[in-house]
């Protein structure tokens, strides 16, 4: 995972609520045994017609979208399946942050492990961002702040541990492996054994 401290980008907007991970990454792309290249399949059924041609009206197909790093989406983004292929696809496309009013738990967890920052904002800010696609925003991971085009700064919730992992670009596995002694002790001393 690359280090991630700062994001400055225009936004792409998908206003639908409850966008599930089957839309983000349809199951037929889950046959891959790698993580790479999933950006092409991102939102496939909304993005391409039956012949695989890009649908011009879809926000991700509009000029400039390919360089955007921030997606703004309707409430409860990433619900449904636990497939990590969803954040892999978003990151492969180029996104580094998603802004919504709520994220599904598993999706949020998966995102933070892949250098994709889930940002929860209040309803008013959300409404403004939804109706202003292309807004230029600034995200500072170290202070967990989102800066809007008018200069207004908003703090967003970000667990300190995940924040550190994003900033240092490390996977959490190393931390868990460093606790091997305590895991050994737990296994030895617990009252019952599975």
């Amino acid at each position: 995972m690359e280090k991630l401290s700062h994001i400055h980008s225009q936004t792409v907007v998908l206003p639908q609520t409850d966008i599930d991970t089957d839309q983000i990454m349809p199951a037929r792309f889950l046959t891959t045994t790698d993580k790479e290249g999933l950006g092409k399949a991102l939102f496939s059924d909304w993005r391409y017609d039956g012949n695989g041609e890009p649908l011009p009206g879809f926000p991700l197909n509009q000029p400039g979208a390919a360089t955007c790093k921030v997606l703004v989406a309707g409430n409860n983004f990433g619900c449904g399946s636990s497939r990590e292929h969803a954040p892999w696809g978003l990151v492969d496309f180029g996104f580094r942050a998603v802004i919504s009013t709520q994220f599904a738990d598993i999706f949020r967890n998966n995102s933070l492990k892949n250098g994709l920052v889930p940002i929860i904002v209040d309803a008013e800010t959300h409404t403004w961002l939804l109706s202003n696609p292309g807004a230029e925003v600034d995200i500072d991971v170290a202070t967990a702040t989102l800066t809007l085009p008018d200069g207004r700064k908003l703090a967003f919730p970000l667990d300190g541990f995940s924040q550190q992992c994003l900033l240092e670009g490390v996977d959490q596995l190393g931390y868990l492996l460093s606790k091997a002694d305590q895991i050994d002790t737990f296994e030895r001393e617990r009252a019952w054994k599975p």
């Binding site: 967890n109 492990k113 667990d159 959490q172």
Partner: peptide, 23 residues
């Protein structure tokens, strides 16, 4: 019992543990 992503599958394979905040 709960669902996890593939990165966490790796965590459990390697350490039989997960990093979790209490729901």
């Amino acid at each position: 019992a709960f669902g996890i992503g593939s990165t966490e599958v790796g965590h459990v394979l390697a350490t039989q543990c997960l990093l979790q905040r209490k729901p």
